[in-house]
Amino acid sequence: MLIYEAQHFDLIRHFETTDLNFPSHLHRCFELVFVVDGEMEVIISQRCFHLKTGQFLLILPYEIHSVITNSQSRAKICIFSPDYVPTFQKMIEKSSLENPVFNLSLEAKTLISNVLFSVNSNLLDQKASLYLLVSELMRQTTLIKAQKEPELLHSILTYIQDHFTESISLNSMANTFGYSYHYLSKYFNVNVGTSFVDFLNETRINYACYLLSTTEKNMTEIAYLCGYENIRSFNRNFVKIKLCTPKEYRDTQISMFFDM
């Protein structure tokens, strides 16, 4: 089963791994992998790439990927939202990287590592470093048209991402993409590992969490902004997914902020 990782909006975070092995999964964020020591294999949309010490690799949003360490590896990973690099995100629509593995000069590597893998960097430095990173990457590779099946999955997930705040359904999506309802339902379940309705609700609730943490909008406003037509459906789905009420979630976020 394919794992869908629901990442928050307006997100950038980093972590370190040792001997990483991770099954096939996808998410709406970019994923930057930097091998500090050792070797690993990253499989992206059925293409295998071998990474050695000092090399970088960039995984695009919604690309199905997995990681294998056959011997030993130590790596740093930075996950960042497409919201941080909108110009680049627009460039890569319905495309893949011919070769996502790339190298950086010592100066660029030091700058990017100090910013993207540091807890003290500010937002402007982070965005500047990300654009420097993708600029260096595109000097070393080219864009190719995504394969048919990954392209359909990418198109479906991107469509949901662009329209989840509206009144959308699997039937309306089937009409949009020119497939039968039953085919698209089965395709979605097989490739994403969950139903369209559950995926849509998880996307909406994750956006609600972002709004609860970053704005002072009331619950009714947030429910509407997330695509729900009434507060009852919003509350029911929020509790089902997050195991707490929206108010409890906001109170927890406020408490965490003051404890910092």
Rank of each mutant, 00 (worst) to 15 (best):
I205M: 07
E5L: 12
F88G: 04
C78N: 11
F196W: 06
I64R: 15
H25G: 04
T215W: 10
D19P: 03
Q126G: 02
N120C: 01
D198P: 00
L57Q: 07
Q72C: 11
N206A: 04
F257I: 10
I12A: 04
S213A: 14
R74F: 10
F102W: 06
S172M: 09
E107H: 10
A174C: 08
Y187T: 03
S169V: 06
L212T: 13
N114L: 04
F56G: 04
S24T: 08
K186M: 01
M1F: 02
T245M: 07
S121F: 08
P100G: 08
P23G: 12
I59M: 08
I3G: 00
V36L: 13
F15Q: 10
S195W: 06
Y210H: 14
L152C: 06
S118G: 08
Q253E: 13
S81P: 05
A146D: 09
F9V: 00
Q46A: 12
D125T: 07
N114V: 08
L124Q: 14
K94W: 03
K240P: 02
H14I: 00
M256H: 07
G227M: 08
L111A: 11
V101A: 02
L104A: 05
I156L: 15
N237Q: 09
F196V: 07
L106Q: 13
C48H: 14
F9W: 12
L124F: 12
N99D: 10
T245K: 11
R13S: 06
T53P: 02
I77Y: 01
S213I: 00
E151K: 15
E166T: 11
E248F: 00
F88V: 04
N70E: 14
M256F: 07
V239S: 03
K76Q: 15
T252A: 08
I44V: 15
M256N: 12
L58E: 06
A146N: 10
N206K: 13
F49Y: 15
S255V: 02
K90E: 12
T194M: 15
L170G: 07
S118Q: 03
S167N: 15
L20N: 11
V119G: 02
S121C: 10
S95Y: 02
E31M: 09
Q140G: 09
Q140L: 07
P100K: 05
L123Y: 14
S118D: 05
D37Y: 05
F117E: 04
Q161S: 14
S71F: 10
D125G: 05
K217T: 01
S129Y: 10
I79L: 10
R250C: 00
K145L: 08
N99P: 00
F30D: 01
M256K: 14
I231V: 15
I12Y: 03
E136R: 14
V119F: 11
V192I: 15
E202P: 00
